[in-house]
Deep mutational scan, measured.
Amino acid sequence: LSQDQINEYKECFSLYDKQQRGKIKATDLMVAMRCLGASPTPGEVQRHLQTHGIDGNGELDFSTFLTIMHMQIKQE
């Protein structure tokens, strides 16, 4: 990932990090990914979360979000 991409991801991540705690809700993951041009299915989002041990009510930090985005873009 280039620095530009990382900055773009950070900007989008921040939109969903409403309390500015450095985390977004798992329920916002799909929308955040789509905001960056990825098109994950609900099943793919579920798999990404399970891979990282996050349940549907959990939260993920930016580095986890980056990893998930990277995996998603590689497979699209």
Rank of each mutant, 00 (worst) to 15 (best):
L1D: 12
L1V: 10
S2Y: 08
S2E: 11
S2I: 08
S2R: 08
S2G: 13
S2A: 13
Q3A: 09
Q3Y: 07
Q3M: 09
D4F: 07
D4K: 06
Q5A: 12
Q5N: 11
Q5E: 02
Q5S: 11
I6K: 10
I6T: 09
I6G: 06
N7Y: 08
N7M: 12
E8D: 13
E8T: 11
E8G: 08
Y9V: 11
Y9E: 03
Y9Q: 04
Y9S: 07
Y9L: 12
K10Q: 12
K10Y: 07
E11C: 06
E11V: 08
E11A: 10
C12W: 05
C12L: 13
C12N: 07
C12R: 11
F13T: 01
F13E: 00
F13W: 04
F13Y: 03
S14H: 10
S14Y: 06
S14K: 12
S14P: 00
S14L: 09
L15M: 11
L15Y: 13
L15H: 13
L15K: 15
L15V: 09
Y16F: 11
Y16H: 10
Y16A: 03
Y16T: 02
Y16I: 05
Y16Q: 04
D17S: 05
D17C: 04
D17Y: 01
K18G: 06
K18I: 09
K18M: 07
K18D: 05
K18T: 11
K18V: 07
K18R: 08
Q19Y: 06
Q20Y: 04
R21P: 02
R21C: 07
G22S: 05
K23L: 11
K23S: 10
K23C: 13
K23V: 12
I24P: 00
I24W: 01
I24G: 00
K25D: 10
K25P: 11
A26G: 10
A26I: 05
A26N: 04
A26V: 10
T27W: 07
T27G: 13
T27F: 06
T27N: 13
D28M: 07
D28V: 06
L29C: 12
M30W: 08
M30R: 12
M30E: 14
M30I: 11
M30T: 13
V31I: 10
A32Q: 01
A32D: 00
A32F: 02
A32R: 00
M33S: 03
M33G: 01
M33D: 00
R34D: 10
R34L: 10
R34T: 12
R34E: 14
R34V: 09
R34Y: 04
C35T: 11
C35E: 13
L36P: 02
L36Q: 06
G37K: 10
G37F: 03
A38V: 14
A38I: 10
A38W: 14
A38G: 10
A38C: 09
A38E: 15
A38L: 10
T41R: 06
P42S: 15
P42W: 15
P42M: 01
P42G: 15
E44R: 02
E44A: 02
H48R: 09
L49F: 03
L49T: 03
G53C: 02
G56D: 13
G56P: 15
N57I: 02
N57C: 08
G58L: 03
G58S: 10
G58D: 08
G58E: 11
E59G: 06
L60T: 03
L60F: 07
L60D: 00
L60W: 00
D61E: 04
D61V: 06
F62I: 05
F62Q: 06
F62N: 00
F62D: 01
F62L: 08
F62V: 05
S63Y: 02
S63V: 14
S63T: 06
S63N: 09
T64A: 15
F65R: 00
F65Q: 01
F65Y: 05
L66M: 13
L66T: 15
L66Q: 15
L66D: 05
L66F: 03
I68G: 00
I68E: 00
M69I: 13
M69L: 07
M69W: 03
M69N: 05
M71K: 02
I73V: 03
K74S: 04
E76S: 12
E76M: 09
